[in-house]
Structure formats: structure tokens, C-alpha cells
């Protein structure tokens, strides 16, 4: 394949869609009518909307808590899986499952588990005497709804952390641990001084990915709450879809989904430099 053709393919599949996506956000493009360039007007417009400001707040709460939980629990789980365990395979299968089940379907199951009438979570809690009927209104109250979507995100994202970190642990040459053992480092010391530093490159990439995945999460909110109650669980992706595609205002939708783009791009840039320099 000639260089020119390869270049054409990259331009067609990557550069062109990317440039168009940026252009959408800078134009008054509607689904049915191509727009003209209007500069940053869309960004000003969305900032002027209370629903969008609420969405920014939601996104940071959602991503902040979910990524923190996934990082801590993921490393913890990876360390546990690294130990010799009986039923190792079953345990690994169990841990991997949430990532493998198609999200569009697994979130439906979670929706059913948080259903106002048939919630198995509430049923169990009520029968254990923890809460009084009818139990928490999971998807109808802002705090509960946010808890629910974060829970599902952690459930789904944890395997990614656990298994990638596990693979990182496995690639650390054994001698390093042995050296630490000889030095008499306890397990916490071993973790801090041997494991963590060596895992840094992997962790940095995994956290980076997870942050991006989490900020752009769509399915969970779309299936469970569609941004409700009263927009308290809307994320960038769900609001962008709602305004840009369902509503037809593609320009504003693009501005919403690209709102964090400069910030994320800066983070990516810094973090990637750091990883390469390390």
C-alpha cells in the first residue's frame, strides 16, 4: 500500500471526522441544515443555560467519585488476584464478567434492579429490616440516582482496572520482589516501594483512559435516568445527545460534548509527556 493511500485512509477515517466534529461545535449546524461558522457562540449559549451548568457539576462529581473508587478498588482487587487463590479461574471470570456483558444490556438489568416496584436491592433491604418499605426511590431522588449511576459505572469499569493492573503486576520481574523481601520490606512497604513505582506507567495510562471513559459515559445514564431527576444525573454525553441529535441542534450538542476537550487535551498532553519522560 503506497504511502499516499495510507495517508488518505488516515485522513478519511481520523482527521476528517475530527475536524468536522470541531467544526460542528463552531457552527450553527442543525441535523437538517448545514450551518455557517459562528465562532464560540455555541459555547457561550450552553454556558448560559442552567441545565448545562448543572451537567458540568454532575460530570465532575460522577467522574471524580467513580474514577477514585475504581482506582483504589481496582489496585486492591488486582493485588488480591495476584495472590495464589483456589478457584482462581472462577474468581477471574467473575471479576471480568461486568466488562464483557454488553453495556446496553447490562445497564437494562441494573435498571430492573433499581426499579421502583421490583427493585431486588430494596426487596432485600426491606426483608433484612434495613430500610422500611418502599425503600429508597433510587432513580427518582438526586442523591440516590447519582449513587446508582456511579455504582453501575464502578461495577462495569472495575475489571478494566483490576485486570490491566494485574497484568502490570505480572510483568514486573520477580527478582524485584525477591530483592525487596531480602531487604525485609513488609507487604505494605513492598507495595509502596517496589510495586507502585514500577506500576506507575501502567497506572498512569489506565487512569487516563478511565477518566476519559468515565467523563464520556453515555449508556448508563441514558438507560437508567435519561438525565433525571430534573437533570441531576445528566453527563456531557447524554446532554449532548439530547440537544444535538434528539433535539436536532447539532452545533450546541457538539459544543456540549467538546466542552471539556481543551482541558482533557491539556491533561493528556502533560500526562503523556510525563509517561514518556519517566
Amino acid at each position: 500500500m503506497a504511502v499516499g493511500q495510507r495517508l488518505l485512509l488516515i485522513v478519511g477515517l481520523v482527521a476528517y471526522p475530527f475536524a468536522m466534529a470541531i467544526y460542528f461545535s463552531l457552527s450553527d449546524y442543525w441535523v437538517g441544515s448545514p450551518g455557517r461558522f459562528i465562532g464560540l457562540q455555541n459555547f457561550r449559549d450552553v454556558l448560559g443555560n442552567e441545565i448545562f451548568r448543572q451537567t458540568v457539576q454532575n460530570s465532575f462529581v460522577f467522574a471524580g467519585i467513580a474514577v477514585a473508587l475504581k482506582t483504589v478498588l481496582g489496585i486492591w482487587l488486582a493485588m488480591l488476584l495476584f495472590r495464589p487463590l483456589r478457584f482462581k479461574r472462577l474468581v477471574r471470570a467473575a471479576v471480568l464478567l461486568p466488562w464483557v456483558i454488553p453495556t446496553a444490556l447490562s445497564t437494562l438489568a441494573w435498571g430492573w434492579m433499581f426499579d421502583s416496584l421490583y427493585s431486588v436491592v430494596n426487596w432485600t433491604a426491606i426483608h433484612l429490616g434495613i430500610v422500611s418499605p418502599p425503600g429508597p426511590n433510587w432513580l427518582g431522588m438526586p442523591a440516590y440516582a447519582m449513587t446508582a449511576v456511579i455504582t453501575v459505572n464502578v461495577w462495569r469499569g472495575l475489571p478494566f482496572f483490576a485486570i490491566t493492573v494485574l497484568a502490570g503486576l505480572v510483568s514486573i520481574p520477580r527478582e524485584y520482589y525477591e530483592a525487596a523481601e531480602v531487604d525485609g520490606a513488609g507487604s505494605w512497604g513492598g507495595f509502596r516501594h517496589v510495586t507502585l513505582p514500577l506500576l506507575k506507567p501502567v497506572l498512569a495510562v489506565v487512569v487516563l483512559f478511565s477518566t476519559i471513559f468515565t467523563f464520556s459515559d453515555f449508556n448508563i445514564v441514558q438507560v437508567l435516568t435519561r438525565g433525571g431527576p430534573v437533570n441531576t444525573t445528566h453527563l456531557f454525553a447524554t446532554l449532548a445527545y439530547q440537544v444535538g441529535l434528539s433535539g436536532g441542534n447539532l452545533g450546541q450538542g457538539a459544543a456540549i460534548s467538546l466542552f471539556l476537550f481543551p482541558m482533557l487535551a491539556a491533561i493528556v498532553f502533560v500526562q503523556l509527556r510525563y509517561i514518556r519522560r519517566e
Binding site: G111, S116, L117, Y118, N137, L139, M141
Partner: peptide, 21 residues
């Protein structure tokens, strides 16, 4: 009504009626 109406999707009211509640 009950507070659950704040959490409903399009299918919830179907279930609400079909459950007999």
C-alpha cells in the same frame, strides 16, 4: 400518587398497572 413517579421511564407505568398495585 407515590414518589416513584419521579423515577419512571416509559415502561414503568405499564408495570405499575400490570403489577396490580
Amino acid at each position: 400518587m407515590e414518589p416513584e413517579v419521579l423515577s419512571w421511564d416509559n415502561a414503568s407505568n405499564n408495570r405499575f398497572l400490570l403489577s396490580g398495585k
